[in-house]
């Protein structure tokens, strides 16, 4: 997918406002939190001498030393588990997965240990840890490196799951995640590490569990998260040109979910389009659709629209990949299905 031109609308740049690429926003978040709290450390493959597989930790080894920026061998189960144990023993680890595709090697540690320790110990253990890294498809990485795992992790009680889109939110939410006392799964995207946007100088936090209304309109609510927010923005642009004004809700936080923001917007527009990179089957978007359809059924003027990836592991060829992923055309088609019969002003 293309993301190059979409950030302008989302991060309205004013004169003298600093812009950062997402990788640098993430690094600033980690550095600030490590300076603030000795217990915070970064561990993962290539995070030290190599500056991170996607250069998110550039210079951090030099700045903090090998005690706190720890190159791990290729052993996701091992170092995720070490992080979880360290968190239970009072530290605040940031565990980087080169990509979340490799987190499956550690998923027993994340789901069966980190997410459940608090319940099984009746609150005697807690696990303040962040698992972060790239999630979702990029360009032609083929099936094993293109998984989008939001639905997997968001399914699990005990985990906090975050999927921000913009540099501003990446930094502010990662800082909140590091300070949170629960295990957090934090999704980034290979395609947007270079994407620039406004990140003000100085300290700020973005609260966990708050969606962001990125643009406002009365005709349709578009809901998305992670890099598909940029696709949603393009879809909204097209719709505006055709006379449809959209609310664009960037969830940012999948678990906990800002239900109020969704209900407020849908109660205004009465029509919803959800854009997700997950497969539809048993997915997060399907859950959102269920939630809206049950909690505010009377507000809906049309069935909830949902655009997902096709039900197939990601094929390699570009011509196939672009069909499998949500596209602007598919989104517009679904939008008009949802908008059928609406009288445009």
């Amino acid at each position: 997918m293309e993301v190059s031109n979409s950030e302008d609308k989302i991060n309205q740049t004013l004169p003298n406002q600093r812009e950062l690429a997402i990788r640098d926003a993430l690094r600033e978040a980690m550095e600030e939190e490590m300076l603030r709290d000795e217990r915070v450390f970064l561990m993962g493959e290539e995070v030290g001498s190599y500056d991170g597989a996607y250069k998110c930790s550039r210079g951090m080894l030099e700045k903090f030393g090998p005690k706190r920026v720890i190159d791990a061998p290729i052993a996701e189960c091992g170092f995720a588990g070490v992080g979880i144990g360290a968190a239970m023993a009072g530290l605040r680890p940031i565990i980087e997965f080169m990509t979340f595709n490799f987190s499956l090697i550690a998923i027993d540690q994340i789901i069966n240990t980190a997410a459940k320790a608090r319940l099984m110990s009746a609150g005697r253990l807690s696990c303040p840890i962040v698992f972060r890294g790239a999630g979702g498809a990029a360009f032609q990485l083929a099936a094993q490196h293109a998984n989008s795992f939001e639905s997997f992790y968001a399914y699990t009680p005990g985990l906090i799951v975050l999927a921000p889109a913009t540099p501003y939110d990446m930094k502010g939410l990662l800082k909140s995640a590091i300070r949170d006392d629960n295990p957090v799964v934090f999704f980034e995207s290979e395609l947007t590490y270079s994407l620039k946007g406004v990140v003000p100088e100085g300290e700020y936090l973005v609260p966990i569990g708050k969606a962001d209304l990125k643009r406002e309109g009365n005709d349709l609510t578009i809901i998305s998260w992670s890099k598909n927010v940029f696709l949603a923005e393009k879809v909204a642009d097209e719709l505006v040109a055709q006379g449809v004004e959209c609310d664009l809700l960037d969830l940012r936080s999948l678990r906990p979910l800002d239900k109020e923001a969704i209900f407020k917007s849908v109660s205004k527009t009465h029509r919803v389009l959800i854009i997700q990179e997950q497969h539809l089957f048993a997915s997060y978007g399907a859950f959102l659709s269920h939630l809206i359809s049950t909690e505010i059924f009377d507000e809906l003027d049309a069935p909830v629209g949902l655009v997902s990836s096709l039900e197939v592991p990601m094929p390699y060829s570009k011509s196939l990949e672009s069909v499998v992923m949500p596209s602007k055309d598919r989104c517009l088609k679904e939008a008009w299905r949802v908008l059928e019969g609406v009288k445009l002003s």
């Binding site: 070490v82 992080g83 979880i84 360290a86 099984m120 110990s121």
Partner: peptide
């Protein structure tokens, strides 16, 4: 569990508590 006495469980997936133990030692 008896966390005050540093008895840290009590884990049900075979072998999965070993990285955890390494993590306690890492913190120490």
């Amino acid at each position: 569990y008896d966390v005050e006495k540093k008895f840290m469980g009590g884990w049900g997936i075979v072998g999965a508590h070993m990285p955890l133990a390494a993590g306690f030692a890492f913190a120490q």
